[in-house]
Nucleic acid binder design. Structure first.
Lengths: 233, 233
DNA sequence: CGCTATTTTGAGATGGCTCAAGCTATGTGG
DNA sequence: CCACATAGCTTGAGCCATCTCAAAATAGCG
């Protein structure tokens, strides 16, 4: 494993913002590198939170499953983003699963190692705080969305965000560069895959999107935003 | 302001767990004391996040309002609990409002003061991390609830939690010791006050609750839990 | 080239919302 | 101390956005 390469990678992440390259070395040295194929998980809901991850390549989806098998898709993780942050605390259990949706490579640290290293660098604690705070804001917004908006608005909002987060400009519009099924969109927005399918069809007719198997392209972000914001039909 | 009294109070809070009384003194000394009548706010959504609060007496509700005036009730804060944690980060805006629902007294610190003091005591940063982490877990659970469960289950769940959090054992059942309107419950669970009213009526007939004006008593926590968990009708 | 996962589409059911109206505690001013 | 005002609550009727279930179409993949 190339130490310098790891250092260069880590200095681009928000968790380690403010650390010098020298300060990053211990982190780089102790990081393990794990990979996962499409469908494999880095960790599973209900298992001990023993490692903190930073994504290097690929995409990971964070899902939470109810006792009766219904799932909520909480977020997609992209490169340089943190996941598994429950490992920062003592005696936690992962309450979500992290599943690769493409071939994926992550750096990770075991709990005892990362907590010891981070406690020597208070700025990383600050950064982690900022990270979680962002997570709280994000969840509050989605909670409110679910509580107050209709399905079509929520799906539009979700697509707009995915576009910003993983949009890939092509001549056929802004392609969302994540394998994304109707079921995924449904689990993100608290609806059913049937309803998502009908909504996408409607938008296709209006020229807003172009959808295929596990693939969505946004033709008009503005149009989608209008749908997301417009309270009336 | 009685310094020792403040120290004794602060050592009971989760944010300051692990600090000695001597270490608490600077925190106690710099704390301001603010109070609010029923209906007044400690801070408003959209204003600069300039202070961190710990509740001393009373109850505060944390609400988020959409541009078109719909509200979500995110949580009730009780004594010794933290709120306004956005102030721990630089350049934040409160994205929620904190309104007293009873006569309320809080300790608070301005942003620059609390961040400086906390950075001298890494354990407080750890504690804050734990606090936010709990908030994330809580929100994830509620998000999933909203996405996958029916209204009746969600209201039952909300009541059970309020009972644990603010239940007051009386001969007329477990009284929720917070002024709690049908509207409040609706905003907590993503429904309307009409539906909440009908649900409470139904539960009253089944002997599960006793409800009045801004008042709910739980007669059977087990019964409510059964409603909350039972997927079918 | 058949198998399987994904998606589409239809038809019907319904949970919960909306709107309107009336009711009832609680507090207030006369 | 009572009449009235008000905020909160209940109740009814109708509707409709969304779910459910079933079945067919489609697209990758081995």
């Amino acid at each position: 494993m190339d130490l310098l390469q790891n250092v260069r990678f880590l200095e681009q992440t928000s968790l380690f913002r403010g650390l010098s390259r020298d300060e990053l070395k211990p982190f780089a040295r102790t990081a393990e590198c794990r990979q996962a194929e499409h469908g494999k998980t880095f960790f599973e809901q209900g298992t001990p939170a023993d490692a903190l991850y930073i994504l290097r390549h690929g995409r990971v989806k964070i899902v939470q499953t109810t006792h009766d098998g219904l799932r909520a898709l909480l977020r997609f993780v992209g490169p340089r983003e943190l996941f598994g942050s429950a490992a920062l605390l003592a005696d936690q259990t992962y309450e979500v699963s992290a599943a690769a949706v493409t071939w994926t490579q992550s750096l990770c640290w075991r709990r005892d190692i990362i907590t010891r290293l981070m406690s020597k660098h208070p700025v990383t604690m600050q950064n982690a705080l900022g990270e979680l705070s962002m997570r709280v804001r994000e969840l509050r917004r989605r909670f409110q969305e679910l509580a107050t908006e209709r399905v079509e608005q929520r799906v539009a909002q979700a697509l707009v965000e995915l576009g910003e987060q993983a949009g890939w400009k092509t001549d056929g519009g802004l392609l969302i560069d994540i394998p994304l099924s109707r079921q995924d969109l449904a689990e993100m927005t608290g609806t059913t895959l049937y309803t998502v399918s009908r909504i996408l069809h409607g938008w296709h007719l209006r020229g807003l999107v172009q959808a295929g198997r596990q693939r969505v392209s946004i033709l008009s972000s503005d149009g989608l935003l209008a749908v997301a914001n417009h309270a009336s039909a």
